[in-house]
Design a protein around this nucleic acid. Sequence first.
DNA 1: TTGTAGGCGTTATCAA
DNA 2: TTGATAACGCCTACAA
Lengths: 336, 336
Amino acid sequence: MNATIKDVAREAKVSIATVSRVLNNSAVVTDETKQRVLDAIKKTGYKPNALARSLKIQKTHTIGLIVPDISSPFYPEVVRGIEDIASMYSYNIFLCNTDQKEDKEMNYIEILSEKQVDGIIYMGDIIRESVKQQLHDIGIPIVLAGTEDAESEFPNVNIDNKKASYDAVKYLLSLGHKKIGMISGPFDDPIGGVQRTNGYKEALSEAKIRFKPSLVVEGNFKARQAYLAMLKLLENNVDAVFAASDEMAAAAINAIFDSGFSVPEDIHVIGFDNTYLSYMFRPTITTIQRPAYDIGAVSMRLMTKLLAKEPIDDMHVILPHQLIVRESTGYGEEKK
Amino acid sequence: MNATIKDVAREAKVSIATVSRVLNNSAVVTDETKQRVLDAIKKTGYKPNALARSLKIQKTHTIGLIVPDISSPFYPEVVRGIEDIASMYSYNIFLCNTDQKEDKEMNYIEILSEKQVDGIIYMGDIIRESVKQQLHDIGIPIVLAGTEDAESEFPNVNIDNKKASYDAVKYLLSLGHKKIGMISGPFDDPIGGVQRTNGYKEALSEAKIRFKPSLVVEGNFKARQAYLAMLKLLENNVDAVFAASDEMAAAAINAIFDSGFSVPEDIHVIGFDNTYLSYMFRPTITTIQRPAYDIGAVSMRLMTKLLAKEPIDDMHVILPHQLIVRESTGYGEEKK
DNA sequence: TTGTAGGCGTTATCAA
DNA sequence: TTGATAACGCCTACAA
């Protein structure tokens, strides 16, 4: 059995209150009794029980992480960023894998709440109304990492998706393309659908190119639908394509090849996310990179501020993204 | 403030004992009172406090994960496997990133112990004596995932590293090579050094090829040292090389090219671990794959058995590995 | 079947 | 400066 504060008290011939005091430096204790207590702690091999302590002080120094899939690209980096900062501030982390499924998310949030976590960092492409409601209800600080909710109710850390998409399209324009197609995310996805499409539109409008709805085809981030989308775009004779995910970009390239054209010779393609697919695929795919580690680190830092009730200058942090140029826009392969 | 069991009791006009009973189905309660309690729970929005419960029952249904780097290849898959099974058995997971540093490992183990985790799953290339001692001292079930300790004191799940290395070398032999070099891990590393070298020796001996110490050069899994090691092997005119890590294999290939030879035309190379490097590098590298997800899943399953004190048929599980053939042994690139 | 009360290991208030 | 003691929220004999 582990030694408790009582055992230490008995050993040091003081009250448990005194032991608690030296443990927390909470009040002045004579150097002599302090030493006695310290000796007793060593002798008994005492270790404080964090459960009891947390129960009393109503803080666990633990935060919950809701993540779609820790084994997919992007998230491990984010989590690493979170963990590094958490460790720096002596927080521990509950890892919860949800595959973005509503029931798993709801269930985990419930459990995290029961385990009295001090806060929750949520990750995921899109955040459902039900999940939002529940996150709201449990009444602890929430931070969205790499995503955001429509009403900006929760603090979050993310990139500017509209701007990212704008940059991608602008790059295609700079390469001389006039007829640029887009394979977007689901139109009802506020980020991958709406924002990225808006960035596309803005870049076009800035270049005084009239927006044609037929050049934006809805995708779902997956290969199959993107392949079909690309076939449609080919009917419209596009000379470049921006896809809202790397997987869709790869599928688009396949569709292009299967239709007898070539990338980058005939058509240029840009993807999104800089996943391993973007550099494994041949041709390697020009893409937008999100600063995963930083998103995690900044999210956790934001969380610590929330927990410490520090004043916060900005509840919605936008981190810079980056365009990574590769073969699919004719720039050739990077040397490593 | 959150409702407690007391509030529910008051609302349902019963004692807290009764509430606790319906919460845990621990004793027979009249259907009627049960319903009253259930209603009261709903009405008050009561959620059990897992801290208080754990303090009482001395179980947290939480396990700690010690992992070198969640953002490096291999580990995210392992952790995913662990999490899936943990979730299945209603366990939560503390994620602890250590970069394999002794002080971070020691510190996290201490904290996990204070937070009263029910068990710890340890990951890392090598497990230090001090860490071993501490893991032992805290007196809870430990499982080593993807590694092992010299004395097999702890239960573990891993591949057979000797056999893996044996398979790699045997494959090189089957390709007609006679003079096979090896770049091993540190000689004092029981796995990457000793076991993998032993597999190499065994394959040679089985092929009646005399073992020449000069053909085994010590590496440290990293590129730089492996590059120099390869230069030495070239002086000995090897026609194939087995490296104990993909990074070393890549460095070896670079050394070969820099010396005016070519892979796979002149020399064949095999790596270890199937990291992204092995398929990103050109030529792509033939390598040994460890079943990461399964290592995690089986480790966690083993842990649940340990925690439930179920009888365990095998404390040391060996999972099958796989040789993945790529360009560096002349097999050409795989189609995806 | 239900209620009372002690205890899990702390912290913190109030006296002494 | 130190010591009793009441919480924190729950479980569980033991009684009723």
